[in-house]
Structure formats: C-alpha cells, structure tokens
Amino acid sequence: MTITITQILFWILSVAALFSALMVITSKNPVHSVLWLIATFFSISGHYILLSAQFLAVVNIIVYAGAIMVLFLFVIMLMNLNRETEPQKNRWIKMAGAIAGGCLLLVLVASLKNVESASTIEDVKGGDVGFIKRLGKELFSTYVVPFEISSILFLSAMVGAVVIGKKE
C-alpha cells in the first residue's frame, strides 16, 4: 500500500479544517473565532488545490480571507466585543443544539451508506478544469449573463450597505 503525498495532505488539511471549524464555534472571543475561520478557509483552499481547482483556491483566499473576514474583523474590533459581551446561553439549549447538529451529521452520513463509493477523484492528464483559462472561457461565454447580473447584485449590495450604514 502506497500513500501518496496527496493523501497525506488530504488528511492533514481535513483535520486542520475540522479542528479550526470546531474552534470557530467554541472560542469565547469573537476575534479568535474570526481567525480560526480564516484558518478553516485556508484549509479549504488547500483542498481546492488538491482538487486542482487553483482558481477557486486563490479566489477563496482573496474573497473570503482577504475581504470578507477583514470586514468581520473590522466590525468586531469597532464594536469592541469581548468575551463578556456574549451572555451565556442556557446550557440545555446548547446541548440540544449540539445533539441536533450531531443527529443531522449522523443521519446524513448514514444516508450515504447506500451510495456506490466507486467514484474517485484522481488527477488525470488534461484534467485542468479548475485552471483559470478554462474557467474564464466558460464564465465569459456560457455564463456571461449571470456574471453580469452578479455585478449588478454587487452594486446594489454596495449601495444597500452604504444606505444602511449611514447615520440618519
């Protein structure tokens, strides 16, 4: 049995992703949560690279880590939220939440039982679907209308954010 470097990386990244995701929801300090979430995103980007989706990996970092999470951090820092600002939730509710989430995971995984697990993901020659050239062509030919529409969505979101954030 040979272990490829891809497999090693997969397990490392998976553990990292799950651990940091858990830390996101268990950290008392919101800033820590943000940083752990960034770590999760990095692990997911690593997965993208393993899946040879280079473009998405980079975009994930630029958009999520570089822009979205900075916004979160901004908001948290400006509001000066510390661990004291979040009052403790009822322990039973927490338990219920955790159990419900666990049940969901269990049920979903169980439902995979009957799935044929023959499908595998390997690197093949010419499998450059995640490369920027191919995606770019696809994006600007087949999906050009949604692309343009999403730009309008962006614009309206920007205007909306400015309007909401403005002090009366």
């Binding site: 996101v24 929801i25 939730k89 509710i93 939440g97 955790a98 419900a100 989430g101 666990g102």
Partner: peptide, 10 residues
Amino acid sequence: SIGIVGVLTR
C-alpha cells in the same frame, strides 16, 4: 454540521 451547531449554540 459544525456550522449548524454554531448557529444553534451561539
């Protein structure tokens, strides 16, 4: 699921 648990507990 971790995300869901987060939504539920925080």
